[in-house]
Structures are given as structure tokens and as C-alpha cells.
């Protein structure tokens, strides 16, 4: 956990983005992820914009160095396998969103101590949607990639 904290602090300092981030209300001073913490603002967000803002990723840049694997067509929206691999150097975190879900943000993972910046997860998709991956690097920058998944039967109601 200390490693994560250090990375975070270093990232904020080195990036010189602190003032900008603070001004945009993206970073709370002294905010550090802890094991028992849950980013309510991001996970309770009802649209992608608010979820990205909750993550601090409002200005994420498109990147081809994020590999986002998901099926083109998902027959069952309740269980859709998604894999994200970041080839961006110093990636420290990956988040996955499904843009049309009532609550778009599915997961957010922080990596440290040798964990490679890649994750496999099964998500619910309410309807045909863009699945979006957001990668954060150690210097506090955000990158994103997306892929459309056509959903035959949605996975949220029932």
C-alpha cells in the first residue's frame, strides 16, 4: 500500500498537473486509495462523463497502446468477458466502463509490486454499448480505448 501511495504522490508531483487537477476538482488533496475505500462518486455515477470525472479521468486521451478484448456480439449481456492489457509504460491502474449501463463503471484496479497492467473480468452489459477501458499512468495521466459490443439479451433486468 505504501508503494501505491508513493507512486501516487510522485505522479502528482512530477506531472505538474496538480494545480490543474485540483482546479478541475478531480483530485482531492491527500486522497489515497486504501484497501477498504470505495470511490462512491465514480461507481454511483449514472453516465460515463460523471464516472470518468469521478475517476479523475475526464480528459483521458485515446490510446492505441491499450488492448481491449471483448466479443463483437454477446448473446448474454449478463456475462461478457472483457480483457484489458495496457502497453503504456508505467501504467498503474485500469478501469472498465460500459457506457450504456445504468451505472457505467464496472471495475477499477490498481497494480503494484510486479502486477502487470492487465486484467480479465466478466461484466454485465444492459444493451449494445461501447465498452471503455481507462488506464492511469504513474505520472497521473489518463488514457482510454473503447470497443463496441452488440448485446442480444441485456444483463441488468430480469
Amino acid at each position: 500500500m505504501d508503494m501505491l501511495r508513493r507512486t501516487m504522490l510522485k505522479g502528482v508531483g512530477a506531472g505538474g498537473m496538480l494545480t490543474a487537477a485540483l482546479a478541475a476538482g478531480l483530485l482531492k488533496p491527500g486522497h489515497v486509495y486504501a484497501a477498504d475505500e470505495w470511490n462512491k462518486a465514480a461507481f454511483d455515477a449514472k453516465d460515463v462523463g460523471a464516472a470518468l470525472k469521478g475517476l479523475g479521468a475526464g480528459n483521458a486521451a485515446e490510446s492505441k497502446d491499450i488492448v481491449l478484448k471483448a466479443p463483437d456480439i454477446a448473446e448474454n449481456g449478463a456475462v461478457v468477458p472483457v480483457e484489458v492489457v495496457s502497453n503504456i509504460p508505467n501504467s498503474v491502474s485500469i478501469s472498465i466502463l460500459s457506457q450504456k449501463n445504468p451505472l457505467p463503471l464496472a471495475t477499477s484496479f490498481d497494480f503494484a509490486n510486479g502486477a502487470l497492467p492487465e486484467v480479465q473480468v466478466r461484466v454485465r452489459l444492459a444493451s449494445t454499448t461501447m465498452v471503455q477501458a481507462v488506464v492511469k499512468t504513474a505520472d497521473g495521466k489518463f488514457y482510454t480505448a473503447q470497443k463496441e459490443v452488440k448485446v442480444t439479451v441485456g444483463g441488468c433486468g430480469g
Partner: peptide
Amino acid sequence: VGGKMVVQGQTGTSVSRNPVFGFKVKGA
């Protein structure tokens, strides 16, 4: 892994029931 925290994750309701996750850890 080996006493070191490698992944910390937060999840929401858009994750499927009986969640499955895959990770890779170098140096294990």
C-alpha cells in the same frame, strides 16, 4: 502474492454475478 499487495480493486454492480478475475504478476 508472497506477502506483497499486488492488486487492489474496486468493483461496482456492472460486474457479473459470481465474478471472475484474471491477473498476472511478474517476479512471482
